[in-house]
Computed example of a mutant assay.
Amino acid sequence: MKTLLLLLCGLTHQRDSLPDLQHLDYKVTAATEWNDLFTRSSGWFGGDGIFSIPVNKQHNDSTLILFSDTMAGEIQDGKLQPGFSMIHNSVAILKGKEPLEKNIQFYWNTDSKGNPATLFEPHTPAAAKGDYYWLGDGFVNTALKNNTYIFAYRIRNISQQDFGFAEVGNVLIVLPANSRPPFKAQRQLDTPLFLPADSSDAYSSFGAGIFLNTKAAGAPHPDGYVYVYGVRGMQKKVLVARVLPAEVEHFGRWRFWDGHQWNADIRQAAPVTAQASNELSLTPLKDGRYALVFQVDGMGSAVGLRLGATPAGPFGPVIKIWECPEVKEDKHFFVYNAKAHPRLSKPGELLISYNVNSFDFFNVLPQHPNLYRPRFIRLTFPE
């Protein structure tokens, strides 16, 4: 046991023995006020993804919220009106931490006719015509002029069938400090943090979640690193990378946990757990453990949590904290990509979101126009 902990040296404070990774005292309820905030009838009325990034932590007054595929249009008397559109990503900015309608504003681009258009479009050397971005997690880098770094997955349509798309690249979008949509001064960097599928395993990509283990971020046991989580294959195996914030653009200085040590070779990255989802989160708990939150089995019916001893594990078994009721409403509905939002959580709790979608999306949407939006639950810990 001590040998394992010594190998994990530098991840967090050392322990003589592993903490309890099987049991958690908690309760979960629906976060009704957050659900209400995203049940909308004009403009933005649906989207998935939803990562939350504190972009003005000093004054505690704004959070950048990232969405991938986004629906824009009008709903009247519960009916979706003609002329709605789907774009590939958008953002919102929330002032404060309360889910108040007056404090949130949604943003996207517009085309030459004034119709909604995707906010972030690929323009890196590796991008091909027709590629688009879905957004991963991001963070404000206090070591690099407070610029915001956002992971983006470069997606390409490969067929007209459902799920007829493939990830073909991984990108970092860099937003200058204090910039506002449409972020005209952004930079985009192709990264080597994507491994295409080979004969031995499915593809791997990083950016599914970020944990800032730094003093500036208020981490309880900071070691100065940014931990970036990746996902591999259909079994949703979780990979871990880390880098110093000041070196985030120097990809040769990234290191990947290989099960024994931090390795410079991304191909040696070893899964620390599985049954997760393409988006997830890691959050430190007050008792020194870490909560990895995800959708069980990628698109399973439950929001899951694993307790970790360090940001790179070991992790305990899946604790199913919430059975998503939406999947019981219609056989075509599915849920995915649960994650926590510490920035928007009150003391003693974790606000958690998950996405809802349909296997028959465009046929189902007119009957359920508010289906495609995040749902929120509140995980509360006893004092």
Rank of each mutant, 00 (worst) to 15 (best):
I173P: 00
I210G: 11
T191G: 05
L193G: 10
E167R: 15
A143H: 03
T148S: 04
I158A: 00
D162Q: 14
D137L: 07
L212C: 13
F194A: 15
F206K: 12
F165A: 09
F139W: 12
L175P: 02
I150H: 01
Q160A: 04
P176Y: 02
G138F: 02
N147D: 05
F194S: 15
T214W: 05
N146M: 04
N157H: 04
R180S: 15
K184P: 05
P192Q: 14
N178H: 14
A143R: 04
N157Q: 08
N213I: 07
V171H: 00
A166R: 09
Y133L: 06
L193V: 09
I150Y: 01
L212A: 11
P181L: 15
S179V: 05
R180F: 08
Q188D: 08
P192R: 15
G207M: 10
P176G: 01
V171E: 01
N213L: 06
S179R: 03
G207T: 07
T191C: 05
N170C: 02
S204G: 14
F163N: 13
L175M: 12
F139T: 00
N146W: 08
S199I: 11
N178M: 06
I155T: 09
A185K: 15
L175S: 02
N178T: 05
F151T: 01
K184C: 10
L195V: 13
R187I: 06
I210R: 11
I150R: 01
G207L: 09
R156Q: 07
A202P: 12
N170T: 00
